[in-house]
């Protein structure tokens, strides 16, 4: 890798520029073609361009912002989890985010007592409360990272069994649930993004503030304690941040998999493992990746769309695989 790109400020600047470029493409391109004049007219809300204003402000901008928040939030969550558990394979699902959100949503759909508009609320609280249950169980035992993972596996298994059971009872519920579980940004509205945006922003800021201490957790409990970190408290804090940001994303984007696992992994390969440096880079890279995947999903078979979750897996999977192979080569050469 080029020496200058290893500098954090240069890498952040480069990624920020790429993100701005991707945002411009994402608001400009879509199933409805826009000339430059129409684009500017719509963007500046000029008379005569109401249709374009509507498309830009009601459809494309919320979607772009949603993609940025989803990418940044899930990547932040994955980075925190991988650092805190010392496990490169950790993602938001290991602390029950997906299972918790999924169970809450299917329960809501099954009971049918409130409208589907409550789905985001159910998803957020389902994910967050499940994580808290897992952490509470783990802390009651011994609070070690292995216990967190094992408690996550146990709780997730029970909730997944509940999801399967409820989906067997009502096929209509299963159809709606499948849509949620694939994950997508098609119907995202601006007002849906305010609370998740605040949560993700606050989690990112807190992670930056405590970055140096969270970074030390990657050394394991004994060394982190020797370096003056209150290991149990700091791990719990980092896991709550990870849970809150992932739950916030699930509330508007559904169960968008893969991002939280892959993005921190790729960034660590490129820029090393120092947590404080990785934070902004991972958030930016995640935002670019999800935004690009969503754009590709919109354009490839327009006017039909492929959900961003599927595109992410199709593009990210082989890319991740090639990275793993290169990593093996690097180790073989040592």
């Amino acid at each position: 890798m080029k020496k200058w790109l290893q500098k954090t400020s240069a890498a952040v600047l480069l990624l920020a520029l790429i993100l701005v470029g991707t945002v411009l493409l994402a608001v400009r391109l879509g199933s409805v073609e826009m000339s430059s004049a129409a684009f500017l007219g719509g963007l500046l809300r000029r008379p005569g361009y109401e249709t374009f204003t509507l498309i830009l402000y009601q459809l494309r901008l919320p979607r772009v912002l949603g993609a940025i928040l989803a990418g940044a939030g899930l990547s932040l969550s994955g980075l925190l989890l991988q650092n805190v558990t010392g496990n490169d394979l950790a993602g938001p699902n290991i602390i029950g985010v997906n299972a918790g959100a999924g169970f809450a949503v299917i329960l809501l759909l099954f009971t049918g007592s409130v409208g589907v508009y409550w789905t985001p609320v159910a998803a957020f609280f389902g994910a967050f409360l499940t994580t808290l249950l897992i952490l509470y169980t783990a802390v009651k035992v011994n609070g070690s990272k292995t216990t967190v993972i094992l408690a996550g596996i146990a709780v997730t298994a029970v909730l997944n069994a509940g999801i399967s059971f409820l989906s067997m009872l009502d096929s209509d519920v299963l159809v709606t649930y499948n849509h949620f579980s694939i994950g997508g940004l098609t119907a995202v509205r601006m007002e849906q993004l305010i609370v998740p945006g605040v949560i993700i922003g606050a989690s990112l800021s807190a992670a930056m503030l405590f970055g140096k201490r969270i970074n030390v957790l990657c050394l394991g409990d004994a060394l982190a304690a020797s370096l003056g970190v209150n290991v149990g408290r700091m791990r719990l804090f980092a896991l709550v941040l990870a849970s809150a940001s992932a739950a916030a994303v699930v509330s508007f984007a559904g169960l968008l998999g893969f991002v939280g696992l892959v993005v921190p992994h790729i960034c660590r390969r490129v820029w090393g493992g120092e947590f404080g440096r990785l934070l902004p880079l991972t958030a930016l890279f995640g935002a670019i990746l999800v935004l690009s995947a969503d754009l590709a999903g919109r354009l490839l078979f327009a006017p039909s769309e492929i959900p961003v979750g599927i595109v992410m897996a199709l593009i990210g999977g082989p890319f991740f695989f090639s990275l793993l192979l290169r990593r093996k080569q690097a180790y073989d050469e040592i």
């Binding site: 050394l219 394991g220 004994a222 060394l223 304690a225 020797s226 003056g228 209150n230 493992g273």
Partner: peptide, 19 residues
């Protein structure tokens, strides 16, 4: 913890391969 860490450093047996 920080006060203690400024006075005693402990290097355990298992040293992880960190990135």
């Amino acid at each position: 913890p920080r006060e203690r860490a400024a006075r005693v450093a402990v290097l355990p047996q298992v040293l992880p391969k960190v990135p």
